[in-house]
Write a protein that binds this DNA or RNA. Sequence first.
DNA 1: CTTGAAAAATGTCCCGT
DNA 2: ACGGGACATTTTTCAAG
Lengths: 148, 148
Amino acid sequence: MDSIDLKIIAALKKNAKQNTKEIASKVGLSVSPTFQRIKKLENQKIIKGYVAVIDQKKLGTGIIAFCQISISKHSKEVIDIFKNVIQDIDEVLECNHVSGSFDFLLKIAVTDMDHYHNVVVEKLTSVDGVLNIQSNFVIEKSKDEYLS
Amino acid sequence: MDSIDLKIIAALKKNAKQNTKEIASKVGLSVSPTFQRIKKLENQKIIKGYVAVIDQKKLGTGIIAFCQISISKHSKEVIDIFKNVIQDIDEVLECNHVSGSFDFLLKIAVTDMDHYHNVVVEKLTSVDGVLNIQSNFVIEKSKDEYLS
DNA sequence: CTTGAAAAATGTCCCGT
DNA sequence: ACGGGACATTTTTCAAG
């Protein structure tokens, strides 16, 4: 792992559909070693995979909300139940267990406020142990990078 | 845009390195129409691009924090200055202007607490108009999908 | 690491239905 | 729109300097 690997990662983080030749010229190597480095990064799972970036506004799910959720007990059971339920809620894009004044920070994509209401009231508040939900809606996203 | 397109999108959202044949079999079409649909989704910018997913823990930046930031004035100038400064802070992965009890929700990746302290104190609190920063650190991420 | 070659796999496009 | 098939490009492997 050196600066060339970091350049390869930076390039693929922006656009994964570049061919090896393009990446090679960006990092100042020829195709062969570039190819080998990419494969190595993939095998080491430093590059975990490749995904398509979807414009959810064009799919009608343009409203993004962050939900701060507090749970009643910090037992493994309550936490595991919550995490399991979350997996099957399509509207939840991201679920982070966090430290601080609340327990989970969720990122949710919905089409409109009825949809949002449905997700929060029907799907989230009904989960065992969920005490409190506080939401913030995204007005504008001004930076976005994907790391996982 | 029909249910087949949605299936294609779902497949590519999980793994963009599948070849057209694999996607075709998943959606129940042959290669040609599948290929044409993918190209159409790309041209319509419903698929905005393809990116590599990087395991930041293996790069040493394993600590993720969400920062709630309040600013002093909701004028266009203050907001624009803040957004501009953010673009050049590598540690900031995401910047959302949100409604609610604070103004911006940032997602930040750092290597350790010194690094975090440096980003918050040196880079964020010094920005004009920044009043208050409250942070929550991610203990565990249990779901993660990428939409933009 | 570089260059270059070659095979296999895939992407891409045209045409018939 | 779909499907088949031909052709172009890339990926992947490999050898020699």
